[in-house]
Design a protein around this nucleic acid. Structure first.
Length: 574
RNA sequence: CGGGGCGUAGCGCAGCCUGGUAGCGCGCCUGGUUUGGGACCAGGAUGUCGAGUGUUCAAAUCACUCCGCCCCGACCA
């Protein structure tokens, strides 16, 4: 396309509210514009990239045997009541009424809709398995949208749903998607990694997240240096340590100590001159209205998700001051396991500790020389903490590493959570009625693009990998007022169009510097510069955006040269 | 939901404290000179100062209310 006719508003200045580099560059490159908090428009350049990604996704999904559908964004309350999520989903679910006062929501995801479709039209095992997907706009009323298109309220998502007759089949469906996802992100030219993850409110047995490696990523992950173990930090399992033998003879007499206004681990540690590792932290959690005390070694942090999953609770949060007062009889900062009236959950980190310090459930007092079994009894013993870099791989015991990433895809084994609640059943070979086994598989479209930019940019702008590039080449005549130059450039433009090369012809009457800056900013992989000096010798210049390589080619050969590079780079990503 | 900040030209900002009717840079328009990494000179256009109410002779400026946006936290696929 001719640049002079394009709607491509690039900008020199960084918008004041853009924090992450991908957001800044998407705005400066004229890809997106914000409408309101967490809601963006895609301008032509941005939408071209979106469509490139969508086509890659479609290709891989179809190849994996999934079929594309399109479901409504507006969904009736009744459907969500069937699955139970009308009550459970919380404020992220945007609800509203129509003129007849019927209640609806904007779909944050489509398990309900797809299940309602499938249950009506799939009746027998002969129709299974099936995998249906769509690329569609979702709405989640995020508490705090941020990072531009990375975490917004309205966003494009590819979501697929598989239905199987048995566990074995479900496993296969999951595997297929897992493979397809690897292909998709590889073809996009992204550095990524699948990691084990928590299933969150979608529910289900287990899941993998696809993380694009990026320092600015919102998610922390852990991976093993030796084996293939990789997990989201919130999921990363801390192995149960080998139990040491505990000798009751070593137990010292428990003592109550006056610790005025000493609350935090740090304060206790300083005041009593003990290491944080010798203190046991007692945290009071409220799980769906019931309180639990979680005990953990002083230098560790509790992983609320593990607590939530262990208790199979819908919502878990640290208790408020009033609830702490009620549960322990003391203000915040003095909770302890001795004589507490609520159930005690003990983290692995505490199991081998003897003669430790805890709160005394009494304002301004702590106990020392507390021991498990003698001074209190526990209800459960499990992994409740956040992994640290001191921990070892839970699979093979080797050292682990931490990294940050952006979650661009998530594959879930749902099991029968929705099919059971919504009665998606079929008849098997024996004429027995069975519940379908489901899986669901999502890819954040805009987020993947943003993640791609986070990984591929320099101080001058975006550097598109060929498969995602909105255009493959930009032709830059140095001076549009020089007849020879323009004639040659026009000729190149035509031949490239004839060769189906995606090309921008920068025919604007701008200084060369301006055009170079814009070309770099919008990240076109190849730039062909047509200038008087080289043209005299029948040559044009080809500059590669990603490595800055700059070479002269005869005018007659440049189109084939460009074509070859494009094919090579697209193939490389297959 | 708690804490903080911001809202003035298309964009980035100054002016507000100490009230007197709005300015800078970029961009935009016209003319000229330029023309290989965001040119220069000359001229020009553009603002319900987020909205409302109040105080005042007079409000971008002071007060109150509302709205919007952003940041930190809580929460979250």
């Amino acid at each position: 396309m001719r640049y002079s006719e394009m709607f491509l508003p690039t900008g020199r200045e960084v918008p004041s509210d853009a924090e992450v580099i991908s957001q800044q560059l998407m705005i400066r490159a004229g890809m997106i514009r914000k409408l309101t908090s967490g809601i963006y428009s895609y301008l032509p350049l941005g939408y071209l990239v979106i469509r490139k990604l969508e086509q890659i996704i479609r290709g891989e999904m179809n190849k994996a045997g999934a079929q594309e559908v399109h479901m409504p964004m507006v969904q009736p309350m009744e459907l969500w009541q069937e699955s139970g999520r009308w009550e459970l989903y919380g404020k992220e679910l945007l609800r509203f009424r129509d003129r007849h006062d019927h209640e609806y929501c904007l779909g944050p995801t489509h398990e309900e809709v797809i299940t309602s479709i499938v249950r009506n039209d799939i009746k027998t095992y002969r129709q299974l398995p099936r995998n249906l997907y769509q690329i569609q706009t979702k709405f989640r009323d995020e508490v705090r949208p941020r990072f531009g298109v990375m975490r917004c309220r309205e966003f494009g998502m590819k979501d697929a749903y598989s239905f199987d007759a048995d566990e074995e089949g479900a496993e296969k469906s999951y595997e297929k998607m897992f493979v397809a996802y690897n292909n998709i992100f590889r073809r996009c030219g992204l550095k990524f990694r699948p990691v084990e993850a928590d299933s969150g409110s979608i529910g289900g047995k287990y899941s993998h997240e696809f993380m694009v490696m990026a320092e600015s990523g919102e998610d922390a992950m852990v991976f093993c240096e030796k084996c293939s173990y990789a997990a989201n930090l919130e999921k990363a399992e801390v192995a149960c340590p080998e139990r040491k033998e505990i000798f009751e003879d070593d137990w010292l007499t428990m003592e109550e100590i006056n610790t005025p206004d000493v609350r935090t681990i740090e304060e206790v540690s300083t005041f009593l001159n003990v290491k944080p590792q010798d203190i046991v932290k007692t945290l009071i959690f409220d799980a769906d209205g019931k309180q639990y005390a979680v005990l953990i070694r002083g230098d560790h942090e509790v992983n609320e998700i593990k607590v939530k999953n262990y208790l199979a609770a819908n919502e878990v949060e640290l208790a408020s001051d009033e609830i702490i007062m009620k549960a322990t009889g003391s203000p915040r900062g003095f909770a302890g396991p001795v004589n507490i009236k609520i159930p005690i959950l003990l983290d692995y980190s505490v199991i081998d500790m003897v003669n430790f310090v805890t709160g005394a459930n009494k304002e301004d007092y702590h106990f020392k020389n507390v021991n498990i079994g003698r001074d209190f009894r526990i209800q459960a013993f499990a992994d409740f903490r956040i992994m640290t870099d001191q921990d070892k791989c839970p699979r093979c015991g080797s050292d682990i590493k931490f990294a940050r990433g952006i979650e661009v895809g998530h594959v879930f084994k749902l099991g029968t959570k929705y099919s059971k609640a919504m009665k998606a059943v079929f008849l098997d070979k024996d004429g027995q009625e069975k519940v379908m086994i489901m899986g669901c598989y999502g890819i954040g479209i805009g987020r993947t693009i943003a993640a791609g930019i986070e990984q591929n940019h320099d101080e001058n702008g975006i550097i598109w990998p060929m498969p995602l590039a909105p255009y493959q080449v930009i032709i830059t005549p140095v001076n549009v007022n020089e007849e020879e130059v323009m004639k040659a450039a026009e000729g190149l433009y035509k031949s490239m169009l004839d060769e189906n090369i995606e090309v921008i012809f920068d025919d604007r009457d701008e200084r060369a510097g301006v055009k170079f800056k814009d070309a770099d900013l919008i990240g076109i992989p190849l730039r062909v510069v047509v200038g008087q000096k080289n043209l005299v010798q029948g040559k044009v210049e080809l500059k590669i955006r990603k490595n800055g390589e700059n070479k002269l080619y005869p005018l007659q050969e440049i189109v084939q040269q460009v074509k070859q590079i494009i094919l090579q780079e697209l193939q490389y990503s297959e």
